[in-house]
Write a protein that binds this DNA or RNA. Structure first.
Length: 824
DNA sequence: GGAGTTGGCCTTTTT
DNA sequence: GGCCAACTCC
């Protein structure tokens, strides 16, 4: 059946390929070659191995030509790893011809082939988020819409959402004025991208999808018959466009193998839909379904903790993850006093680990949001523990880097307005805002790009259609404009011969950008120079790599790589502790993991905007992902007080902690936290009188209750059940207890009846002589701003609350101006 | 026209 | 706490 493939030595016996041990379901997943196949791969169940063997089996066992196999991964890094492992099995020559990559990188490759059919220039550029926002900003101006009423971010996210559903401006019924405005923006946005010969991330997929689904298109026919076997990894995170794309690509043969785990679906916010994997059997009734349920990665206690968390998830595909690994150490749940205390604790444990001989590359620190990383980073730096941060402010987002890249992109494609706008006056060449406004005016009038508007503006030949004005410029400005254009033309000329790195250096020289930075001669400018140097090096690396692969090093190729490289791809294999968000940790594993910030409202994360808070389920899955990254050791930390986003918050431990089985977990207090715990109650001001001291025998674990210390402001009080007080000897280990903490009892201020095991309350806030109980989450009314929700309260003689009002955003208001409402 | 300063904004997760 | 935009001053 298979076409023979004569390239290289593919004659390996499949049994040779299969000589590693695979268990029953794994072997099935490898050998079930034809027809649709759905593999549920639990965390740590050897998924990558199965995919690699499956591909090797297709190549060697079934002699499928490599260029007929498409494997889609979630990150470039995963693709690289897959290729590496395949090379060991079937050799590099064959692997070179395989199609392995992310949806986006595969689509770019296909689009470069069929750019004409897709209506794109050969040199099309990819607009990232910032570029897109710049386009939206320009569009808003053009349509005369107030960017305060229509924040570019919001408009853009709407456009995104439409695109991820595959809807064009024509497919939208707008039933509100806002929607209507967004739709008009969407239309204009599309027009601008087209004029600029630019695509955004969504377009990459949509453009290919349009071709594949077009029965008339020749390019579409090529795409439809191109691949005979399609594999999709991390299938729980595909969105609708991606799913349609996959189906269209294999409509001729149905040899579609998807691998995923609905429990690990964590990208709903960017269009992923778990229902796709859950509904796969409905769409492909003949599909075989295989479940990989044995976890080979983690020690028993980690698996138990993870299972405890995910067991409470709604609507999951039934599966039983299990392991035969030894139980290992219990998962440690660490109560810290503050984020600094937490960071210090983490650093101390990392120090211990490395002293025991654990390599820093086997240690990772996770957090829910990037904002948490700074404190951790500071401590690691002062402790001289080597670390690398994945994500955050990205290298390629630094201004100087974007500038140089913009130059390169304009060289490739002068019509890319966003890039032109960014560099036309960098370094300053006396082309100011007024001039640029005129340039935009001319460009809009003529419906051309900014670059193509330079000449007409300089010549003053244009008349504004509406006002009849002739946008004109002074002779000096005219000279500046033409000089700029001239310089770009020379660079474009040069680009035909020179390598990308030569061109980049030439740009730095010729534009005077390098000189400017050198002359500034301060720390910041030095850092920028350093960064530019790093960029040059990365271009050189790219050229090296292409040379090694026997391919030409094209500037477009480099730019494309930059656009499509994700944070997760930047994890280096070096002996440094890895710090990253949990999202970035997906697919990775470490000997030791620190999961920080395990607190209500941080994890599960609660946004200030109530609208976007329906996703505790996804947070739960995120917690599951986090826990299952650890092979041997897992510390989960939470702090009772944390300064984040410019304010101090007092959060209870995360609800997910209490879902972990007691047998797998051990509670620990940091020294600072113990100190707090021992602090005698009654030392503070008001608010403590009922908060503490009602129950309990005065043991250490009892008085972490909050109200006891007013100087720290209002905080949630909690109390550990007596039962868990193992080991009294002052060790104050809080018990297994943490996991049983009730989070937000139904009536917060209700006095707990004796016998109730926990209390949660916080000091009331006096207001205008009338005692009201305001707390985080309280609904309040303000004369001017209307209804709002309390985020936090700064205590004092005149307490101030941070309150989010719908329509007004977050304001700081004195509590006495707020009227509490019933309910929350 | 340009540079510098202040004020106001938001504040998840990213191919 | 950091970034962007608008405003002011030169």
């Amino acid at each position: 059946m298979a076409e023979q493939y004569e390239h290289g030595d593919t004659t390996q016996d499949p049994r040779v390929v299969m000589n590693e041990e695979l268990n029953g379901p794994q072997a099935d997943a490898v050998t079930h070659v034809d027809g649709p196949l759905l593999i549920f791969a639990g965390a740590g169940s050897g998924k990558t191995r199965v995919i690699v063997y499956r591909i090797a089996n297709l190549l060697a066992g079934h002699h499928v030509p490599p260029y007929r196999i498409l494997a889609v991964t979630f990150t470039n890094k995963a693709a690289g790893e897959m290729k590496l492992r395949l090379e060991r099995l079937v050799g590099p020559e064959i692997v070179r011809d395989l199609w392995v990559g992310t949806f986006h990188s595969v689509c770019v490759r296909l689009l470069r082939k069929h750019h004409e059919a897709a209506g794109l220039d050969r040199g099309f550029v990819i607009y990232d988020d910032a570029d897109q926002r710049a386009v939206v900003a320009r569009v808003l101006k053009e349509l005369d819409l107030d960017d305060r009423r229509y924040p570019p971010r919001q408009v853009l996210s709407r456009i995104h959402a439409y695109k991820q559903e595959g809807r064009s401006p024509d497919d939208i019924d707008s039933d509100s004025y806002f929607d209507d405005a967004v739709t008009r923006c969407y239309r204009a946005y599309e027009r601008h991208l087209k004029t600029a010969s630019a695509v955004d991330f969504d377009d990459l997929l949509l453009a290919v999808l349009r071709l594949v689904e077009d029965p008339e298109s020749l390019a579409g026919e090529d795409l439809r018959s191109r691949f005979r076997y399609v594999l999709v990894d991390e299938f729980q995170d595909v969105n609708h466009v991606q799913y349609r794309l996959v189906r269209a690509l294999c409509q001729k043969h149905d040899n579609l193998c998807v691998v995923g785990d609905d429990d690990q679906s964590i990208y709903r916010w960017r269009g992923a839909d778990v229902r796709v994997i859950r509904g796969f059997r409905r769409d492909f009734p003949t599909a075989n379904v295989i479940k990989l349920e044995q976890n080979y990665r983690s020690v028993g206690n980690v698996v138990q903790a993870a299972l405890g968390v995910i067991r409470h998830a709604k609507d999951r595909e039934p599966k039983e993850l299990w392991t035969s690994n030894r139980p290992g150490d219990p998962v440690q749940v660490v109560a810290a006093d503050s984020e600094h205390d937490e960071a210090a604790w983490v650093a101390a444990r990392i120090r211990e680990l490395t002293e025991q001989g654990v390599s820093p590359r086997e240690i990772a620190v996770f957090y829910r949001v990037h904002a948490q990383s700074r404190v951790l980073e500071e401590v690691l730096r002062s402790e001289r523990i080597p670390y690398q941060i994945i994500g955050g402010t990205r290298f390629f987002e630094r201004a100087e880097i974007k500038n140089l890249l913009s130059y390169l992109r304009v060289v490739v494609n002068p019509r890319t307005d966003v890039d032109l706008h960014r560099i036309i006056n960098v370094p300053p060449r006396k082309i100011g805002a007024t001039t640029i406004d005129r340039l935009i005016q001319v460009a809009d009038n003529l419906q051309v790009s900014l670059y193509d508007a330079i000449q007409p503006l300089a010549e003053g030949a244009i008349q504004d259609a509406h006002t009849g004005n002739k946008p004109s410029v002074t002779p000096q400005i005219r000279k500046n404009l033409l000089a700029f254009r001239d310089m770009m033309e020379k660079l474009r000329e040069m680009a035909r011969e020179a390598s990308p790195s030569q061109l980049a250096e030439e740009i730095l020289e010729r534009t005077g950008y390098a000189r400017l930075l050198k002359e500034e001669d301060n720390a910041e400018a030095d850092a920028r120079l350093q960064n530019l140097h790093e960029l040059l090096q990365s271009i050189l690396d790219y050229e090296e790599e292409m040379k090694a692969a026997g391919e030409p090093a094209l500037l477009t190729g480099y730019l494309e790589r930059v656009s499509l490289t994700s944070d997760a791809d930047t994890l280096e294999d070096v002996p440094k502790v890895a710090m990253m968000t949990i999202h970035a940790a997906k697919g990775l594993e470490f000997h030791a993991v620190f999961l920080t910030g395990m607190e209500e409202d941080l994890f599960p994360f609660r946004s200030m905007e109530p609208s976007r808070n329906d996703d505790v389920e996804e947070e739960r899955r995120l917690a599951y992902v986090a826990v299952t990254r650890a092979r041997e050791k897992l510390w989960i930390t939470h702090a009772s007080r944390r300064a984040i986003f410019g304010q101090t918050r007092y959060n209870a431990p995360s609800r997910f902690l209490k879902d972990m089985p007691a047998s797998a977990v051990r509670g620990v207090l940091t020294p600072a936290s113990q100190l707090m715990a021992r602090r005698p109650e009654g030392s503070g001001g008001f608010g403590m009188s009922q908060g503490a001291g009602r129950f309990g025998g005065g043991r250490g674990d009892r008085d972490r209750s909050a109200g006891a210390r007013f100087d720290d402001g209002p905080r949630l009080a909690w109390r550990h059940p007596q039962q868990g007080a193992m080991g009294s000897a002052g060790s104050a280990s809080p018990p297994a207890a943490l996991r049983n903490l009730p989070v937000r009892p139904p009536t917060p201020s209700a006095t707990a009846a004796p016998g109730e095991r926990f209390v949660e309350r916080e000091p009331d806030v006096e207001s205008d002589g009338e005692a009201i109980s305001l707390r985080r989450g309280s609904r309040v009314q303000h004369d001017r701003f209307g209804l709002g929700t309390v985020n936090s309260i700064d205590p004092g003689p005149d307490p101030i609350a941070s309150v989010t009002f719908s329509g007004w955003g977050t304001k700081r208001i004195m509590v006495r101006f707020l009227k509490p409402l019933e309910g929350r």
